[in-house]
Write a protein that binds this DNA or RNA. Structure first.
Lengths: 202, 202
DNA sequence: TAGATTGTTAATCGATTAACAATC
DNA sequence: TAGATTGTTAATCGATTAACAATC
């Protein structure tokens, strides 16, 4: 949870920097996210002494520190597997690039989609995944294929030596223990929403 | 958190039922999700006495109870706003329909996309949103438009009397207090993954 | 120096887990 | 009756918050 909050703080600092704000207090940061100022200070202090007593935190300094902690100060080449609607949506998604993630190869099994470039990024047949991932030093893979092929893709990514996988397929997949695997469930939020609707209807 | 777990239990029970399993113990459920059996029992007992001592829980009975609690026993008509890549991906996403969510109207501002049907669902110009939402008794809206138009769409949905909004646009939007608003952040998981990659590189 | 705000300790709160009587 | 498993109470754990000395 602390890591997720650091990620949220970082985006806020990016915005503050754009707005030309020089310093920010834990109180001000907390208010933006309905958090407690002590929690903000604790989150930050866990990784170092970034603040200045009586002043607060220097926006660009803190931003740089957090980006470094989160690994967002560098570019991460990412492999996107599956170039259907969801894959395309993720490819064009603004949020990724902003934080240093660069989709540098796209893989799809449909020959009609392959062997061309989209915005300068090659779309390649899935069988070239192993070679390309290694050649490009890609450590992160995004799985955006149908449920049926998600496990096979994961196995391929694992064999190619990938370190982290973000899975959008609506199925639980298995990966070797040393690979960090995160499932993104697009429907669970909808289900919690319906709980509240059902409750107020009761 | 309890609600999210109930949602996960429900899917598991759906699977168990398909597999012809008649009863399941809190222990068995817990093992599937790396949870503690006491936690599973507590989650369930909070809403009623669904189990049988010495036996466990009857799969189809418990499934039905949980679906009722989560409002998944009925169909929820849903309005999808934005029919670009992300909108299309969500429209075809298998996970929604499985749980009783039926996208029953799609809205988009691009005239080229409007005034036709996709799998029997009408794609309509955004200006008809208010009328259609009311006519169809839609209470849930999914926002899948670019960040720039997300707030305007939200305002329209609010004016149309919608009760819950799931927002996929990468921007914080505001809605009246009586509307339940949930932001889905597609990139936060990627950012936590890079934290772990950066850490092991340190 | 006076005012502001940090970093950190101690107190509080809530969520998870262990334990067990109840009971199928 | 013996074995299994629930629902629930009490204990534990971890995360959040309050409070405050340190210090800019």
């Amino acid at each position: 949870m602390t890591i997720r909050r650091l990620s949220v703080y970082t985006r806020c600092l990016l915005q503050l920097e754009e707005d030309g704000v020089k310093t920010v207090s834990s109180q001000e940061l907390a208010e933006r996210f309905n958090l407690n100022s002590a929690q903000v200070r604790k989150d930050l202090a866990y990784f170092g002494e970034f603040g200045v007593r009586g002043i607060g935190y220097y926006v660009s300094g803190l931003k740089a520190e957090l980006q470094k902690i989160l690994g967002l100060h560098r570019e991460w080449p990412v492999a996107l597997v599956g170039f259907g609607n969801l894959g395309s949506a993720l490819f064009h998604y603004k949020g990724f690039a902003r934080q240093g993630f660069r989709i540098s190869a796209i893989f799809d099994d449909d020959p009609a989609k392959c062997n061309r470039e989209v915005n300068g990024v090659p779309v390649l047949p899935a069988r070239e995944l192993g070679r390309e991932v290694k050649a490009r030093g890609i450590q992160i893979g995004i799985v955006a294929v149908p449920a049926e092929s998600a496990q096979a893709v994961t196995d391929q990514l694992a064999a190619a030596g990938i370190k982290a996988i973000l899975n959008f397929a609506p199925v639980r997949i298995r990966a070797p223990r040393d690979i960090r695997l995160k499932d993104v469930d697009l429907s669970i939020e909808l289900e919690t929403l319906s709980f509240y609707l059902a409750k107020s209807a009761r």
